[in-house]
Design a protein around this nucleic acid. Structure first.
Lengths: 194, 194, 194, 194
DNA sequence: CATGAATGAGAGTTCATTCAT
DNA sequence: TATGAATGAACTCTCATTCAT
């Protein structure tokens, strides 16, 4: 395996970044196992050789992509805003999650799957997830009246929001009313915090 | 693509079944993309040729496995029993799900991922999921006092149980107390049905 | 390679014969390399195992088929009849060839190709061809007035008839008038014998 | 099926060309079904991967080879020369055909066989054959005194020449005198044009 | 630094042949 | 004898990775 260079010039920094972004986009859209390195190169507008100047292998692109995704994207931004009502907060959390899913059109399960099969990714992912849980837990402290098992409650809340987002994005079950699902989820989270 | 035989003799029926079971087991354990057809053959104790006597390709084994899994396993059996209290019912549902996950030690996400990327599987999966939801909804009617959006509520409940099962099986977040998580989930489902 | 039995019973003689006939038919229709032994077995209404009771391998079926074809079929039968006029003889030779081609709908070229690549078949084929040439030469002696190079002339005549038969059977070139082609070939053979 | 590249650089053009030439040569020598892609790669001095960079599959190599053969080689070049006598013309046509056959040492029948079984090739082949027939017909107009059915006559002439070439190249029938065969064929063609 | 042609190990798949029943 | 399930060597084809230019 040849050495992977750390880009120095501005232009090459851009190249690396473009490979990560475009590559991750393609992976999310088509599935990691359904695309080739050549596909990524083409989609990113670089040569296959260039890929190996910045990444040691195919998975490395994914790792970088996920890392960035987890760091910059997954984290809902609402939390930084001014004090919201409980209802507003819940709505915002849900909307942020849906937006994030929409934007990335992520083949979430495949990512999770690959992440699971890779020690390094697995650790990274769980750390981020955990960070998120802790962060939100801290934030929710002010909103709940029963702080018992708040960590677990937050975990459950995040799961509820994630499930809702998936159902809305992929709309797998036509008979389920999106609005009702959203409403019920909101009310349920409200109940958790009560 | 050569013709796929429908086994006639008893022995060959066993062979097909063994390939499905062992193949699916291996796929779940190691991941579909991490094993080869030769691996499956070896693990099932047959020759590679035998695989193609019963399945038209690698994915066909998976399809059969998933089909069987969804048909025979996913469906919790508790529901057939005598009248349970609401609390007991919830506990039973959760335990059945955990047991099923434990038994299959499924790389759930990868399966879901592959399922998502395959029209045929996708349809099959959603049908089964939907069947399950409808079935449970019918069953829960007797347990809820507010039947509004019961379909959506059931969907949410199934999601909660699935998330819980995963967390317990893989125990990804060490800081989360399993018992608390279970307890909170139970209480939450109880609240949904109240 | 297991021993090949020589059928003793009447029924098994029929089986061997059926495999040769049906197998050769299938080979001619579909091409030797496009069919499998299983295809032949199915088409002949026997099991794959039975094939190897009468033939040592796939090619053996072909050899038997070609042998039979060359022995019983290729040889035009007209020659045994009463004295024909020169014109009649030529017409009869041509018709016999066309009929034979029609009946067998043979993928002639593939047979010839396989024959060429196999020492044993090659010898067999050329012997039959040569026999035919000699036989016809002998027969034509009475019809020609210039017996110089009669062997070569006969060879040329057989080639002309074969080419004509192919063109008529497969009718590859739509612009060529079948009747004209036939007429010209007849006249040409007549000229050879003059 | 992955994308097939159209070579851009000079060197890669050479590679594609070498695969066609060497591959076709090997196919002609050994027979399409008797060689593997690995054989072709080895014989052409490239890797198996390179084969699939320029051709979508094994048959594609053959198609390209035949195309080139038909386009560049099959067509006798004599016709472009100055006015020849009828006898000279015939001799030239025959010699050109024999030379072409010698040069390619083609397993003619197998090629024809494969061509027959493939729609695309079949069309290509017949077009070229037809082109040749038309072209020669036009040319022969000046040489014949009886232009009736000239198309059919030309077809017959081409068949005669082809048969002669085969017999001379493979010399299947030892008893046939090459010189006599050639002489008789020449005289016969002369008769056709008279 | 960038390119893209070249590589070759390894994947999925086929099928002539064998053998237990 | 007849069966057809089982075999496994050998095939075609893929694609992550390398390297000469």
């Amino acid at each position: 395996m040849s050495e992977v260079r750390e880009p120095v010039k501005k232009t090459s920094k851009k190249t690396k970044q473009r490979i990560i972004e475009k590559g991750f986009e393609l992976i999310c859209k088509e599935g990691y196992h359904n695309i080739t390195c050549a596909d990524i190169a083409k989609y990113a507008g670089v040569s296959t050789g260039s890929i190996y100047q910045y990444f040691s292998n195919k998975k490395d692109i994914l790792i970088n992509g996920i890392n960035q995704y987890l760091t910059e994207i997954m984290f809902p931004k609402i939390i930084t805003q001014e004090k919201l009502s409980k209802e507003q907060l819940i709505k915002e959390l849900i909307n942020a999650s849906i937006e994030s899913h929409k934007k990335y059109k992520i083949q979430h399960e495949e990512l999770v799957s690959i992440v699971h099969q890779d020690k390094e990714l697995s650790k990274l992912y769980q750390e981020k997830e955990w960070e998120m849980t802790k962060y939100l837990t801290k934030y929710l402290e002010a909103y709940t009246i029963d702080p018992d098992n708040l960590l677990e409650k937050t975990h459950i809340i995040l799961g509820l929001i994630d499930n809702l987002s998936h159902e809305i994005i992929y709309h797998k079950h036509k008979k389920l009313k999106e609005e009702n699902l959203k409403k019920e989820t909101e009310q349920l989270i409200l109940k958790i915090l009560t």
